[in-house]
Each structure stands twice: as structure tokens, then as C-alpha cells.
Write a protein that binds this DNA or RNA. Structure first.
Lengths: 188, 188
DNA sequence: CTACTCTTAGTACCTAGTCATAAGATCTCG
DNA sequence: CGAGATCTTATGACTAGGTACTAAGAGTAG
């Protein structure tokens, strides 16, 4: 395992990259050099210490979590709402929403925006989607901003259903339409 | 901010849970008690020290890095697939997928599972959803396992469309159906 | 042989703790 | 009101996994 400096440093980078949880002591053993040498190497390669490495990994996870949590609330940001009437939300298409191959947004994100807007517009504790009829008019690309508009078209108190039409646009160009039949509780 | 022990410990747990990157010193300041008190609290509540907390967060990220890649591709786990024929995926409903109020899964997750399965079953580089007609037959609850089955019903080479029917079940009980009209590129 | 790089060693210091002990502060109950 | 229990704070010794700096020996090239 004893190699020259260059080789060792290359391997060191690779090793730490693969497993950032490795200590200097373990690395020293692996490469049969002293701990100090490892530290000099890290210094030269500007690789931070174990704790810093772990911290950045943890922080990244945390960031991701924050991004994935709004997936639990409303997809997109509601910018206007009149209960039982209409609502508007915007949704910015980021890396994590598109197919890597062609940068086109996955359909379920557009659906999610529209569906959660349909849920939000209903003035009720409990609103669930019963049926939906949707059309993807044109594909949405990375970094585009989707504006979804929901309009309540009919409220049928008898069968406890509310009908919501959602249309989504990118730069005033229609990209998605959906007719949602929403179930609403009669508990209020 | 000075409270009795019970209150403080409850808040402490919540605070650390929300932001595991907080040190004992910061917590001491926040609750206007000494660092030692915070340490006794952590001991009683068996909350590990900062570095251990950060480490477990980082380790989790590392573990599900492998899992999160397919998760970004397909919602749910594909357990069987025959391209251009049929496919099956399972999706376990967790905390983050349900409405807090009633523990019912948000519709867009069921849609996402079905939609991404419809995308996956198509033997093509580029498959996009053009239209979909969906019905939520009964609500799905927390911790239920949804099995989605996709079946390709028709391939129209002329207009470049593939029709996929997806049915989702919980314990053999139908919870969701969807008819997807998928756009497929003619490039291959 | 000298000059240079590379490697190793050692010391002081740091953070964010643990563990144990002791003592002061508060509360509770008889 | 006072004694005992509980809670809080302080102190000291020790830990991992480092940084920063100085110093010295080994190996090699010119």
C-alpha cells in the first residue's frame, strides 16, 4: 500500500469521496504512513476534516428534506385564493422535477400542483379527489414557471361533490388542463 | 423562556428534532439555563450529543442515496416489468404522503405511482403523458401498501400513442384506476 | 555535498462533548 | 416552618478528532 505522494493523494481523494466517514488514523493505517502525512495531504488537497465532511453531508440531506417536505403541503406556492371560488399557484420547475434525459417535467408534478390547488380551493376540512380528467397540452421544461389557475365550476351539496377546473400556463401558453371531481365531507 | 423542567424538556426535544445542528450552548441560551442542565436533560431524554446527531443524519443520507435515485425515477418500487406489456409497482404510504388531519394519502401520490409506472412500462427513450382519466375509488390510509398494475392496452404507431391502464389495490381492494394516453417518440 | 522535498514527531490549542462529584437553589409535604 | 427531595449549576478530569506550528530526520537530484 505504500506509494509515492502523488499516487497516495489521488487514492486519498477517492477514498474519502467514497466514504467520507473515515478518520485520519484509519487513512494513515491504510496507506502505511503517519497521521501527520495524511493531514499534510488533506491540507494540500484542501479536504476538510472528518467532522466538517460529515456535517456537510448531513446538511445536504437536510436541504433535500426541506425541499421534499413542501411535497407534503401544497405543491407550488399559492399566490391568490378565494375559497369555493378560485385559486392561483405558481410552481418553478427545478432539477429534481425533470427527466434527466430531456429536461422535461414529470407529469405527476404538474398533476400534483393542480390537484393540491383543487384541494386547497375547497372551503372544507376534508377534501379528497374522487375523479380527474387531465390533459398535458405541451411539455414543460426545466426552469419554467407554471401558473395554475383553479376555478370551482359547480358545488353539488346533495352528493357532496365539488367540481374544479384547473388550467396551467407557462408564459400564457396552456400546458395542462384538468377537471377534478372532489369529494367534500358534509360534516360542516 | 424560563420554564419548568417538563416544559423545557418537551421543547428541547422539539427544538433538536427540528434542527439537530444546535449545540448545548445555544440551547442553554435559548432556555436561559446552564449548559449542564441541558446536558442532564439530554441524558434523561437520551438525546445524543451534537456530533452523534449530525453523524446519524449524514449516515441516513448515505444509506438512502442508493434508494433515492430510483425514487426520483419511479414513485414506488417496481417489482415486475415486461416492456410494452405490463408492470407492477408497490408503494408504501408513509407519514409524508398523508394529510395530517385524517391520515389519508394525498391523491397526487397515487397518481404519481400510476403515472410513473405508465412511463416505465413503455419501451421507449421518451415517454410522456398526454392525457389521463383517473378515479380514486377509496381513500388510502397511512401505512397501507399500494400495489399498482399497469397494462398496455393499445399501441398506435401512427399517432405515436400508447394507452396504458393502471389499477391500484390495497389488499386486493381497488383504490385507484387510471387510463393513460402516453406520447411516445418515433425516434426509435 | 548541498539543497530540496517528503515524512514524521511533538507541542499547544480547539470544540463539543462525557462522567463524576459537590454544592447551592427551589419546591413540597408533614 | 423546616427537612428532605428534586432540580440546577459548577468544577475538574478526560475524550476524539482534529488545527497550527516548529523541528528534525530520510531520500533524492543536481
Amino acid at each position: 500500500m505504500r506509494r509515492n505522494k502523488k499516487e497516495r493523494q489521488a487514492l486519498l481523494t477517492a477514498t474519502i469521496n467514497e466514504n467520507p466517514f473515515v478518520t485520519d488514523e484509519e487513512l494513515a493505517e491504510k496507506f502505511k504512513v503517519s497521521v501527520q502525512t495524511i493531514r499534510l495531504d488533506r491540507l494540500e488537497l484542501s479536504i476538510p476534516e472528518l467532522r466538517e465532511r460529515i456535517k456537510t453531508v448531513a446538511e445536504k440531506r437536510f436541504e433535500d428534506e426541506v425541499r421534499s417536505l413542501p411535497l407534503d403541503e401544497v405543491i407550488g406556492e399559492i399566490i391568490d385564493i378565494e375559497l369555493d371560488q378560485s385559486a392561483i399557484s405558481i410552481f418553478d420547475v427545478k432539477e429534481e422535477h425533470v427527466f434527466k434525459r430531456n429536461q422535461i417535467a414529470r407529469g405527476h408534478h404538474l398533476f400534483a400542483q393542480a390537484n393540491s390547488l383543487a384541494v386547497a380551493v375547497i372551503n372544507d376540512e376534508l377534501a379528497l379527489t374522487a375523479k380527474a380528467n387531465i390533459q398535458f397540452k405541451r411539455s414543460v421544461k426545466l426552469n419554467e414557471r407554471v401558473v395554475a389557475k383553479a376555478r370551482v365550476s359547480k358545488i353539488d351539496e346533495n352528493i357532496g361533490r365539488t367540481f374544479v377546473e384547473v388550467t396551467s400556463y407557462v408564459n400564457n401558453e396552456l400546458v395542462f388542463t384538468g377537471d377534478f371531481e372532489m369529494y367534500r365531507s358534509k360534516t360542516n
